[in-house]
């Protein structure tokens, strides 16, 4: 079973995504802070990480940078999932090594699942 870690401080989003992933046969893991998200990534070694940018403790950019600097986690694809869509944020996330950058409000859950599957298939 493929593991997906969702680092997101909004618990209602966490739950909807987690329930949807589990209903499609994935193992859904969640973290509501940047710091605990990093620890969960290192401990669980998920197949993919969904990462919000505005996070308490450590923000999404810091988490992304640490994930990509750590040899054990640098190959895990990271999909940035946020409601920020300024070109500066998009460029920064992609230059730090995010696989793709998606805006939450623009996607339905099933459309996000299709994107996740594409990224997973590309990295498998």
């Amino acid at each position: 079973m493929r593991k997906i870690l969702f680092i997101e401080d909004e618990e209602s989003l966490q739950k909807a995504m987690g329930d949807m992933l589990e209903s499609k046969g994935y193992s859904a893991l969640g973290a509501v802070e940047g710091e605990s998200g990093l620890l969960a990534a290192k401990r669980e070694m998920p197949d993919l990480i969904l990462l919000d940018l505005i996070l308490p403790k450590k923000n999404g950019f810091e988490v992304l940078e640490e994930l990509k600097n750590d040899p054990s986690t640098k190959n895990i694809p990271v999909v940035v999932l946020t409601n920020l869509e300024g070109s500066a944020e998009v460029e920064r996330a992609l230059s730090l090594g995010a696989t793709t950058y998606l805006v939450k409000a623009n996607y339905k859950l099933d459309e996000l699942l299709a994107k996740i599957e594409t990224v997973l298939n590309h990295h498998s």
Partner: peptide
Amino acid sequence: LSAVKWQLNF
């Protein structure tokens, strides 16, 4: 709005 969208979508 995203939260409402995802919850209803699910």
